[in-house]
Each structure stands twice: as C-alpha cells, then as structure tokens.
Amino acid sequence: MTSDLPAAGDSGWSDPDTLGAIPPVRTVTYCGHCGESASKKSHVLCRQRLEQGPPQYCPSCRRRLTVNETAEGWVAECKKHGETSGTITRA
C-alpha cells in the first residue's frame, strides 16, 4: 500500500529525518504599485512610481490600501496589517 504522505528520505523535503515533514513555506509578496506578485515580472517602473507616490496595494496580502497624503509624506492602512507610512520624493 502506497501513501501520498511524505516519508523520511523523500526528495524535496527540507528535513528528511522528520516523518510527515511539511514543505517549506514560501512567502509571497506583492508589488505596492500594481498589486501583482513581486516575483512574477520586473517591477522597475512600479518602483520608480512608488518613489514618487504612495503604495496602492498591501505587499503582504494584496488588499487595496486606504491612503492619505500629508505634507510630510503618506499614511496607508491595510484592513488586515494596519498602518504604514513613508515619504515621497518629489522630482
């Protein structure tokens, strides 16, 4: 009888000495400007736009942020991850 559960010595598992090993967790981050996966494409233009303005998406969960611009910079709030702030570089 074969099992789909991982076993010691299975290739691709981080710790072959642990029975029932769980694969490593990959953290996915998102672009603050466009909301797409940060690892899927080049975000050179997005990074340039983020230097000139506040983020629109949470980099942790991809939720749309509530953004308030102030004289000193910006304050963005994610419903799940709370508040972040930053400054804006004016050209």
Rank of each mutant, 00 (worst) to 15 (best):
G12D: 02
V25K: 12
H33N: 10
C78G: 07
T84M: 06
L19W: 00
D4C: 09
C46A: 05
E83N: 04
A21P: 00
Q52G: 01
P16V: 01
T18F: 02
R47Y: 04
V28E: 14
S3K: 06
R47A: 13
C46R: 06
L45M: 07
P24H: 02
A7I: 02
S11E: 09
H43M: 04
L50F: 01
D4V: 02
S11R: 12
V44L: 08
P23H: 03
S60D: 15
P59C: 13
K41C: 08
V25M: 12
W74Y: 15
C31W: 09
C58R: 07
C58H: 09
N68I: 09
D17V: 00
R64W: 06
P55R: 12
T27K: 12
W74H: 14
D15F: 06
Q48W: 06
G32D: 04
G82W: 00
V44P: 00
C34G: 10
C58E: 11
L65S: 11
T66I: 12
S14A: 12
R64G: 11
K40D: 14
V67W: 06
T29V: 09
A21N: 05
A38T: 05
D4A: 10
I22K: 08
S60R: 15
R62D: 12
R64V: 14
E72G: 06
R62L: 10
T18G: 00
K79S: 11
P23E: 02
S14C: 09
L50G: 01
T18N: 03
Q56K: 15
H33T: 04
D4P: 08
